[in-house]
Amino acid sequence: MLQDYRNPWLYRGMWVYLLLLVGALLLPVFYTIYISFNEHGFGAQIYDFTWDWYRVMLGNTQIIDSLRWTLGLGAATVAIAVPMGLIAAKHYKRTRHKLVLVTLMLAPLFVPADILGSALLVYFKNLNRACNWLADTLGLEWIRTWFELGFGTALVGQVLWTVPYAFIVILITMSRYHAQQTEAARSCGATGWQAFWRVEFPQIRVGVASASAFVFILSFNEYTRTNLLKGGFDTFTTVLISHMFNTGMSEDSYAMAGTVSVISMLVVGGVLVWSLARVERLEREARAAATPLGSA
């Protein structure tokens, strides 16, 4: 191996740099969590550990209320974005218009939050006016509130934001699936549905589960689009930001930021560890396959 002749210190140095970079990216988050447990808050010379700021946070009904909206919005986003990503990934495998589909599915990644959020806002306001006009002139009362800003419009914003991630994660998992197994199932008498549910889905379940976790966390963390499209209610992040802009950095906003980070890290970290453990198992199996137990 040519690698054996390389400078080992350069190799180690790159590893150190890589880990330092990840550490640096995470540092502010950990620092925030650290401050959130200090009785004296940011900038104090002394550090006394306390849960007080979290207690203050949990005592705030506005925050608890917003948490409920956040979870509801997150669940709804997962329920829509993940199946949509799955269907799109299935479609991608069969369609001849791959470039069009992939552009359409990934484009929202490239449009910044404020831009997409305000375009959607103006779009929904226009649709809302149109619906109101139809309700007034044609007496179609039931369509009056279809596009009123609220849960539905915020949901559209969040689905647009999360669907590219769901699509990519599921597509990557699918690339490890051999389509021949679907054909085998079909030739054993399975319908298209049965082949999908009994053979393909169990093998891409990890991807679907990770996609769900990622989508939930992305939804949980989203601020700009939700803030523009939410109408009347508040989510955890919109409360946090309005706190910050109105009252500056109070100690309980550190606790809120800490909460968001810890939940995100637990979910994402959990998914990573779980899926890596699975990959590990699959690789062990692959190695076992290379040295069969019995001979033919």
Partner: peptide
């Protein structure tokens, strides 16, 4: 690098 990427950019900027 997913871990920092998945924690809200809002929180990271704030932090």
């Amino acid at each position: 690098f997913i871990l920092p990427f998945m924690i809200s950019e809002l929180i990271r900027v704030f932090a």
